[in-house]
């Protein structure tokens, strides 16, 4: 009953072997935010992975690599993240929780916890970010979007997320969120990205919506609708309308499906407009 032992993992291998040894009664600890919210009663051992050398941010061509135990605040402040996509990812971090929590919470934790209401998965799905994880036998990787289609909770019972890789994009992204107050989780959120071709038409579009209240998803129908079109206010309005018909929304105690449908359309239109203007801030 309750925590009996606490370990500092010196590296990934040690973390993994400890995790395996606990046979389901161990838990990895990074920021500890989610563990503090609700630790499974069967957990007897905590394995601190912040000592495993997984924190760090580095530019990777036009992309970015972020170690799993990098805190959200470290990303928000990092030069490398601010240089990636006009600081899009860094700014998303500013939407998440409060400073004290951002100083604890890690990117890896956000990916693995994958809360349906969370902001980071929405941004990561839109960005086509790739998760890299390791278990005792091998290293695997998949896009975050793909990962969420797999039984990822089972995967991470015996694996450790080590890194998230962000690809280079020729274009811009924008993030939008509606919450009740500062530091709150989203009632709905979205991340949209656009790139233009030589003729000023939309070469690619990425549209992800989260907190619907389901986990972040891309809306490829909206993306396809936008591709090859010329950016305009009217196009965003039409995309928003498409959004309204395509998006799967539901009720929870925070908001109704009906409101989410309207709000989803509104924030997607805004995000597309801002992305098109190359504006990635709070403008």
């Amino acid at each position: 009953m309750g925590i009996k032992r606490f370990h500092y993992a010196r590296d990934v291998e040690e973390a993994l072997s400890l995790l395996a040894a606990y046979e389901g009664r161990g838990a990895l600890l990074a920021g500890g935010v989610d563990l503090a919210r609700g630790l499974a009663p069967e957990v007897e051992g905590l394995i601190d992975v912040t000592t495993a050398g997984l924190a760090g941010i580095s530019a990777d061509g036009g992309g970015l690599r972020v170690g799993a135990t990098t805190t959200l605040e470290a990303i928000r402040r990092s030069q490398e993240a601010q240089g990636y996509l006009g600081g899009f990812l860094a700014k998303v971090m500013g939407h998440v929780a409060t400073l004290p929590l951002r100083n604890m919470a890690t990117l890896g934790g956000a990916v693995v916890s994958a809360h349906p209401w969370a902001d980071i998965p929405t941004a990561l799905v839109a960005l086509g970010a790739e998760a890299v994880w390791q278990n005792e036998e091998l290293t695997e990787k998949a896009s975050v979007e793909e990962l969420y289609r797999r039984p990822f909770r089972a995967i991470f019972r015996r694996a450790l997320l080590t890194e998230v890789r962000f690809p280079a994009w020729d274009g811009a992204f924008a993030f939008e969120k509606v919450a009740r107050n500062a530091g709150d989780i989203a009632l709905i959120n979205c991340a949209c990205g656009l790139g233009l071709d030589g003729e000023g038409k939309i070469a690619w579009a990425r549209v992800a919506i989260g907190a619907t209240p389901h986990r972040a998803k891309r809306l490829t129908a909206v993306e396809d609708f936008l591709t090859d079109e010329a950016p305009s206010e009217e196009l965003w309005a039409e995309a928003a309308h498409k959004m309204k018909t395509e998006v799967e929304v539901g009720d929870d105690m925070r908001a109704s499906a009906e409101w989410r449908r309207s709000a989803a359309a509104a924030i997607v239109r805004r995000a597309l407009d801002r992305a098109a203007k190359g504006v990635t801030g709070d403008a």
Binding site: R37, T98, R180, N181, A182, G183, D184, I185, M253, R254
Partner: peptide
Amino acid sequence: TLYEELLFSPRGRVRNPNLFDYRIPTAAD
């Protein structure tokens, strides 16, 4: 005025007895 409200289940249980789900203003608000 803007966000506080205790919510109840049909059997009278408080659904949001915590500061994650029951929001109060912070300095940032």
